[in-house]
Design a binder for these strands. Sequence first.
DNA 1: GTATGACCTCAAGTACACTTGAGGTCAAAT
DNA 2: ATTTGACCTCAAGTGTACTTGAGGTCATAC
Lengths: 160, 160
Amino acid sequence: MSADTDTDRGVHGPDEPLTIGEMSRRTGVAPSALHFYESLGLIASTRTAGNQRRYARHMLRRVSLITVAKRLGIPLADVQHAFADVPLTQTPSHEDWQRASRRWKRELEKRREGIERLERELTGCIGCGCLSMKACGLLNPGDTLSSQGAGPQRLRDEDA
Amino acid sequence: MSADTDTDRGVHGPDEPLTIGEMSRRTGVAPSALHFYESLGLIASTRTAGNQRRYARHMLRRVSLITVAKRLGIPLADVQHAFADVPLTQTPSHEDWQRASRRWKRELEKRREGIERLERELTGCIGCGCLSMKACGLLNPGDTLSSQGAGPQRLRDEDA
DNA sequence: GTATGACCTCAAGTACACTTGAGGTCAAAT
DNA sequence: ATTTGACCTCAAGTGTACTTGAGGTCATAC
């Protein structure tokens, strides 16, 4: 409608949905991956009369969050949970995204704290060179304590 | 030899190597995974006359670091790099581990900073609810700026 | 009206990180 | 000597996260 020279379709008003190609270019995620995410229910699309996908704009955000999660090593299953009550089929409200933001933030905090703990411990190790010494508490799960039973395994606690 | 009642073998002096079962129990990593890591050259073992693996004690550390890396979503290929000049076949020196510690620390720093940046941005988003609004800089790679060319893609910068 | 590029589905393939299974050996205890 | 549990190799299977390809449709431009 508006005379314009975008690549795909004439540029749309801010409420018009995006084609899969547009989504892909804007998020940097391959169309095939978008198909895949949709098959998992992480994102959703409507279809045109001719069966082509159209994405509401708020899907950009979802896709971006998926990308971020991937960078942090968060599996898609967990991402699904983080999106738990952000509506998929209609534009989410402020409150929806706020709740989700908080959830993401908590997740990030947990990860950051894990890293920070490790950094502190490694810093100690750099000082004393103890990654090669018995004294280091971090990566020494039982060297001199081995015969004393169930104890050691310092490194496996935090999944629970 | 020493009369003792450990599960595998009588408890060994602090310099004796470990069986794969002992490694597995102490690190929490399955024997099959240890085989696999060995096939990738991430760890190494000597063999007994009867072709069974024996692990030097410093391998515990390597395995633990691999485990940590996995928790952080670091791929094994990168782990290999982080171990670049920690000797595999002989006990690493102080300096070897110090260099490695520093490398690990830098890696952790990078990850933490990525997370922190994201946290800051998300905190802003929680305040304003803007995960659903155009004003948010974080997850809004080009909503209103789309037709202006190559620009957006805020979320893909830091791989390089 | 026809060519071109973007899109569709579905099946199969790929890469990573392992696990499982079959078939057989090793080693400590009885 | 024989049993038992730990170990060996090698091949194939699993789960996650996609990509690639074949064969065909849609939509816009000329």
